[in-house]
Amino acid sequence: MPDPWVRMLNSKRGLHLVVLYLNLGDWRIPWSVRVWRGKGQTSLAQLACKLLATVPTALALDAPVIVLADTEFGTIEFLQAVQRRG
């Protein structure tokens, strides 16, 4: 039986994570992490939307919100989630 944590994505085998970092001044802080469970489960873009929703709005009041993401996240749902946060 294959390892339940190992998945294939774009011909790459491994543990695929979606990580949200906050850049606050000189600090880069890992805010939250989600594990992609594989095909047929919550998509990478949906996981990223959930991570964006966890950031308190108070953190984004005094600074611009900049989201850097791989093209894998280029879905309408994700882009709308980024727009709501910005």
Rank of each mutant, 00 (worst) to 15 (best):
V33Y: 03
W31V: 15
S11T: 07
L79I: 08
T57H: 09
M1H: 04
L61C: 05
R34T: 13
G14I: 01
A45V: 02
V18P: 01
W5P: 00
A63E: 11
V6P: 00
G14E: 03
T54P: 00
C49I: 03
V35W: 04
E72H: 11
I66A: 15
L51C: 14
G38M: 09
A81W: 06
R85S: 07
R13K: 10
P56K: 13
V82P: 00
R7T: 00
V65T: 07
G38T: 10
T42P: 04
V55I: 15
L24I: 06
I66R: 14
I76R: 14
A45P: 01
R28S: 10
R7V: 01
R85W: 06
F78T: 02
K12S: 10
P56D: 10
L68Y: 08
P56R: 13
R13P: 01
V33M: 08
T71H: 09
L15E: 06
S43C: 02
V6I: 15
A69W: 08
S32L: 07
R7Q: 13
K50M: 03
G25E: 13
S32R: 14
A53Q: 14
E72N: 12
A48D: 02
V35K: 07
M8G: 01
D62P: 01
F73T: 04
L51M: 11
M8R: 08
D26R: 14
E72F: 11
V6Y: 06
I76T: 15
P4Q: 05
A63K: 11
Q41N: 13
I29K: 00
L52D: 04
T75D: 05
G38Q: 07
T57I: 08
T71R: 11
V33R: 02
N23R: 14
D62K: 10
K39W: 06
V18G: 01
D62W: 09
P64M: 06
R28Q: 11
E77I: 08
P56T: 15
V33Q: 03
L22Q: 11
P64L: 07
G40N: 06
A48F: 02
L20M: 14
